[in-house]
Amino acid sequence: MDTTFSLDDFGPRICIMGPSNSGKSTLAKAIASKQSLPLVHLDQLHHFPYTNWVPRKTEDFYQLHEEAICEERWIIEGNYTKCIQSRLKRATGLILLDVPVTTALWRYIRRCYSSKPRIGGLTTRRENVTWAMFKYIVHSAPKNHLGHRIIFEQATIPKLMLVNPSDIDACYQSWDI
Rank of each mutant, 00 (worst) to 15 (best):
D9R: 04
R90M: 12
P49H: 14
Q35I: 00
V54C: 09
I151E: 05
L42H: 06
G120Y: 01
T51E: 09
G23M: 02
H145D: 14
H139Y: 11
A30R: 04
R110A: 12
I84G: 04
R126I: 13
D9V: 01
S36W: 00
E71V: 00
L162W: 01
Q85R: 09
R90Y: 02
A170P: 03
R87F: 10
W74G: 02
K57V: 06
H46M: 12
N52E: 15
N164G: 09
G147K: 15
S25Y: 02
Q44D: 08
D98E: 12
T123I: 02
G23H: 08
T4C: 07
K34D: 10
L27G: 03
Q85F: 07
Y113P: 01
T58A: 14
H46P: 04
L64Y: 09
T81C: 08
T123E: 11
S115F: 05
A32Q: 03
P158D: 13
L88Y: 08
S140C: 07
K159R: 14
N144Y: 09
M1S: 07
S20W: 00
I109W: 05
D167C: 15
I75C: 04
A104W: 00
A155K: 03
L27M: 05
S6G: 11
N52A: 15
I75F: 02
I150R: 12
D9Y: 06
K57L: 13
T92K: 02
E77Y: 00
H148S: 06
F134Y: 14
P142F: 07
P117M: 03
E67I: 05
H41D: 14
